[in-house]
Design a protein around this nucleic acid. Structure first.
Length: 150
DNA sequence: GCCAACGTTGGC
DNA sequence: GCCAACGTTGGC
């Protein structure tokens, strides 16, 4: 499958991923997003890297799933804002995949640009009120976005 | 900074 | 199990 993953570039941007090569997608505390990572994301799946709360917000590049889901370490870290007192090592509550850098687009494809493309009218991230930070993307939408990023 | 959308919590 | 209150996301 193909995916879109949101990150605030002030916190973690495509440039950070490029520099670090890979990252564990820690800190997701939404069950739907967790379930996608835990159940559906496979090594090799391609990912649109989305910048949220940004100037401009939009799709910044491509990544790929490099390791299947494991327990999110931050849920055990009392000093982390993502600490979860109800999680135990035996029964972790939160899982995340590892993603690797693939490509940074020459320019971020802004939300405005995406909205202009009729082929993307049904794309999840463009729907009003859609806040899910990990979401599936159809093959068709993925290819359209990839072409726009060239 | 505003606020709509929507997820989570907790009292009942 | 319902649902009001509250918190968060994220575009603008």
């Amino acid at each position: 499958m193909k995916w879109l993953m949101k990150s605030e570039p002030d916190v973690f941007s495509i440039d950070t991923l490029k520099k670090d090569k890979t990252t564990w997608w820690e800190g997701v505390r939404n069950y739907q997003a967790r379930n996608f990572m835990m159940n559906d994301m496979k090594v090799g799946d391609e990912v649109l890297f989305y910048h949220s709360n940004a100037e401009p917000s939009g799709i910044a590049g491509l990544a790929r799933v490099s390791k299947a889901a494991e327990a999110d370490k931050l849920q055990f870290d009392k000093k982390s804002e993502y600490y979860d007192e109800k999680a135990t090592k035996e029964k972790p509550r939160w899982f995340c995949v590892q993603v690797e850098f693939v490509e940074k687009f020459p320019e971020v494809i802004s939300l405005a640009e995406l909205h202009k493309n009729e082929k993307l009218a049904e794309m999840m991230v463009l729907k009003k009120g859609q806040r899910l930070s990990v979401q599936p993307v159809s093959d068709k939408h993925f290819e359209v976005v990839k072409k726009m990023g060239k």
